[in-house]
Amino acid sequence: MPKNGKKLKEALAKVDRAKSYPLQDGIDLVKSSTYAKFDETVDVSVRLGVDPRHADQMVRGAVVLPNGLGKDVRVLVFAKGEKEKEARDAGADFVGAEDLVAKIQEGWFEFDTAIATPDMMGVVGKIGKLLGPRGLMPNPKVGTVTFDVGRAVKESKSGKVEFRVEKAGIIHAPVGKVSFDGEKLKENILALLDALVKAKPSAAKGTYMKKICISSTMGPGVRLDVSEVSAQL
């Protein structure tokens, strides 16, 4: 088995894995435990009290983080005519129709988010099996299938995060960079968790948010006190 490096061991030593930390303390711990030479992403993982095998317990949605993600989001838009111009004016990186579909079929995926007008979904559907597994398929439930492409592009550029519960009942989402100050990370985390609460299925029973952890790309996970965090929502 590979051995943990010295820096990782030092980071792990800072975290009490048996303890659940208040949100601000958890954020401070994540920031102080980073050791990579790049600006690591801060991620949130939430175990939900749902069974995604049942359609009425699926949790999916999107939220625009108040302080963005700290990175340049490459946005692709499937649109024609006036909507194509609207997308370009809003700052979309790539705009097209059949030409983009052909490019993606050839193996091109140099974008982070895909948006489509409803009338383009017949064309986009041809590459659904390529976009879906990568989490890039436009979907009306998260606002990426819309005629309001200008707004959708601006939201994606400003830090819109999509979330979807996995088979194990867990949601993972980025909430910024370790270089963000603690208050900005806190605001982003609370915005994400608030969106999760609002997306709670009516069929979900019992405790909804069972466990919350935050971590940096390379650093150890820090467990948060769910009750303390929930009181701030």
Rank of each mutant, 00 (worst) to 15 (best):
A114T: 13
F94T: 12
A92P: 12
K103I: 07
E110C: 06
T113W: 05
F94V: 14
V123C: 00
D99S: 10
F111S: 08
M121E: 10
D119R: 00
T117H: 00
G122W: 01
A102R: 15
K103S: 14
I104W: 07
V123M: 03
E106N: 14
P118L: 07
T113C: 07
E106Y: 07
F94S: 07
E110G: 15
D112S: 09
F94P: 01
A102S: 14
A116L: 05
V123Q: 01
F111C: 10
D99M: 06
F109E: 12
G107C: 11
A116Y: 01
A97H: 06
G107H: 14
D119M: 01
K126M: 04
V123A: 05
A102F: 05
G107T: 11
A92S: 09
F109N: 12
M120A: 01
T113Y: 04
G96H: 05
A114F: 02
F111I: 09
G125H: 00
T117M: 03
I104K: 06
D93W: 13
V123I: 14
V95F: 04
I104P: 03
W108K: 13
F109S: 11
A92Q: 13
F109M: 13
F109D: 11
A114E: 10
T113A: 11
E110V: 04
D112N: 14
M121Q: 06
E106F: 06
